[in-house]
């Protein structure tokens, strides 16, 4: 009979992380240890808090993961964190973005402020008019697209996402926007334990760095879109744990 361990407390997880990481992942893979993803990631980051290279190396490993996927002939996809489990966002790419946190905070605040007051509504009206077939194929109803065209508002359950964040060199230009389903997809793109997001949080305003960001399909105005196989697929949490060390 094999024993299965379910470490839940911070102390138990900290003790678990004393095991060499590869061996630990092997225990998880063989289901001899079962961990909650949020608790495990929190404990892992605490364990690595003095490792200056931890997040940068995870960014590098994420890029390699994506390149290996392409080299193997697999379709594009990004691996992302979500509280309910890791997701593969099919159709996404992982791109190394030279990220500079805007030093001009007034410009940032102006762009952020203008987004809802003018840009968003105009973009949604335009997309409803020019991409009706794509919106319908993604699962929106005729009435929802008509309402978008009339009112310039996102349909229920959807939000507008900046492909390149405003906080970086991203702008409110139409080609930097995409309509995303709130949860899980939009929340997962901004998943707290995504290497890119962690890297950005560590950067000072005006600082630059290479960041591995999940970017939506270039020609899409809406995500997910099952008609193009652009969907979020559940993956074992191990796939993300392996990126991290």
């Amino acid at each position: 009979m094999s024993l299965i361990s379910y470490p839940r407390t911070a102390a138990a997880l900290a003790a678990l992380l004393k095991i060499p990481y590869r061996a630990l992942l092997d225990l998880i893979r063989k289901q001899k240890v079962r961990v909650n993803i949020a608790e495990f990631m929190r404990a892992l980051f605490k364990d690595q808090q003095n490792n200056d290279r931890f997040v940068a190396e995870a960014n590098d490993r994420l890029m390699k993961w994506f390149e290996a996927r392409r080299a193997a002939g697999d379709s594009d996809a990004a691996i992302v964190y979500h509280r309910s489990g890791v997701r593969l966002l099919h159709g996404f790419t992982i791109e190394k973005v030279s990220y500079t946190r805007k030093r001009d905070r007034n410009l940032y605040r102006k762009e952020r402020s203008e987004f809802d007051s003018t840009v968003k509504g105009a973009w949604l009206r335009e997309v409803a008019r020019t991409h009706r077939a794509e919106l319908l194929s993604a699962g929106l109803g005729d009435a929802q697209v008509d309402a978008m065209a009339r009112d310039g508002k996102a349909p229920e359950g959807y939000q507008v996402h900046h492909r390149i964040p405003l906080d970086d060199g991203g702008t409110n230009a139409p080609d930097n926007l995409i309509l995303m389903r709130n949860d899980v997809e939009h929340r997962a793109i901004h998943g707290y334990y995504n290497p890119g997001e962690k890297c950005i949080q560590q950067m000072a305003y005006g600082a630059c760095g290479e960041v591995a960001l999940p970017l939506p399909p270039r020609d899409a105005v809406i995500y997910p879109n099952p008609s193009r196989q652009w969907v979020a697929e559940r993956r074992p949490s191990l796939d993300l744990y392996e990126i991290y060390k």
Partner: peptide
């Protein structure tokens, strides 16, 4: 605040 980078904007 904003998700990416947590900047306070208002």
């Amino acid at each position: 605040i904003e998700f990416v980078g947590k900047p306070v904007w208002a």
